[in-house]
Design a protein around this nucleic acid. Structure first.
Lengths: 218, 218
DNA sequence: GGCCCAACCGGACCGAAGTCCGTTTAAAGT
DNA sequence: ACTTTAAACGGACTTCGGTCCGGTTGGGCC
């Protein structure tokens, strides 16, 4: 929290390419030393295992460290902080999602018309967020961080591109943010669990919103 | 975190009425004992003062306690946890905002047509969130909590009502959530600070979104 | 005015996040 | 194979949020 931020690599690809994250899933980090790489996977496995047992909220750094057979300092060196570790775990699970909408089959993948892909993207996201809401919410100590994370930027770029391909004019950048906001894990959790709303209604709202946004051309 | 939740009053009005929070700013708590009430205001003042000096992120419970001349246990008894204290501080600042759109002059207050009020509400919210973003973001440890807080519910109900009064049909409940999501402090901060976007553009996006949503009647 | 109990108070105590620094080691160059 | 150096390692240490429980006090009631 103090000092001018040490080297600190966090997750591989956390820094990403300079500005060209247009269509690549996630660039790998700058190559770790052999032992570091080994420990990294050990730590992620241990964390994943512990989380399955105790839940993401009860995951302690010390427990992860000793389960992986390393010291606590190592965990912090690798992931920066607790949130960094959780984000790394999350990133790993997001690879499948990214593959689905970047290179998968229609209607999500590139072989479908843009508007159709956009419609299909919402429910996919909502379900993904719901399935991992525990981890996602646990990883959200600093809200600012979520927008900076590569996975989030990728989603945003993707939606923005689809909007443009669908012929939507106007501020597609902010429209994409609006659309994505409706799939936020905290919101979905609040609606479905806290207020007992069926998931179908949330999905219907997505389709409705896409129609309202794409229907007119500003 | 364990146990079946003690009495724990948190902020006055934190619990709010059962379900009728339609138009009241915020009900007061169940009347504290004289010394408790005195300490409560002392604590809020001390916290507010310390925050001005060190920033919300560096506010420690112990510092607040000793600055107010009470023990640490007292702070936790009164506000439940750190987040509770921050929310109480925030609630205090929100009174003005609530007064403005519940009983204030047009175009925000009740003497203007619904659609006009809706248009005016966005920029007001965005500026409010930006002005207090430090406190707001610091208070957001558990994202689920933000939707349960009375101030958030009030905003939501307000927008939903305005939408209906403006003749918008469809799922106004979720549309209101969508609109409010675009004024989220973390998002606004990310856009304006992290990406250098002018505030006017965010406000323009609000107006555009209101038009797109209200333009068609589903 | 005096009694009683529920609510309040305080600060010792605990657990976990994050820091620090002396030691060890991978791997690149000679 | 040997040296060198930047990186990685580990665990003691600090700080802070949150809990606990014995002692104190406000205020309704007789």
């Amino acid at each position: 929290m103090t000092g001018p931020i040490p080297p600190l690599d966090t997750t591989p690809g956390a820094l990403g390419g300079p500005t060209d994250l247009t269509l690549t899933p996630a660039g790998e980090g700058p190559a770790l030393r052999a032992d570091a790489a080994r420990n990294r996977t050990r730590l992620l496995e241990a964390a994943s295992c512990l989380m399955a047992q105790c839940g993401a909220a009860n995951l302690t750094m010390e427990a992860v460290a000793s389960a992986a057979g390393v010291g606590k300092g190592t965990v912090f060196r690798r992931f920066g902080d607790r949130t960094g570790l959780l984000i790394a775990l999350l990133d790993h699970r997001e690879q499948l999602l990214q593959a689905a909408f970047l290179t998968g089959p229609p209607p999500l993948g590139p072989d479908a018309p843009a508007l159709e892909r956009l419609h299909a993207f919402g429910p996919t996201l909502v379900r993904h967020e719901r399935d991992h809401h525990e981890l996602i919410l646990a990883a959200r100590t600093d809200p600012r961080r979520n927008y900076a994370v590569p996975a989030a930027r990728l989603r945003h770029t993707h939606v923005m591109l689809l909007l443009r391909q669908a012929g939507v004019t106007g501020d597609t950048d902010l429209l994409a943010h609006t659309l994505l906001a409706t799939t936020d894990a905290a919101l979905v959790h609040h609606l479905t669990v806290g207020r007992g709303m069926p998931l179908e209604r949330v999905e219907a709202a997505w389709h409705d919103l896409v129609d309202r946004v794409a229907g007119t051309t500003s």
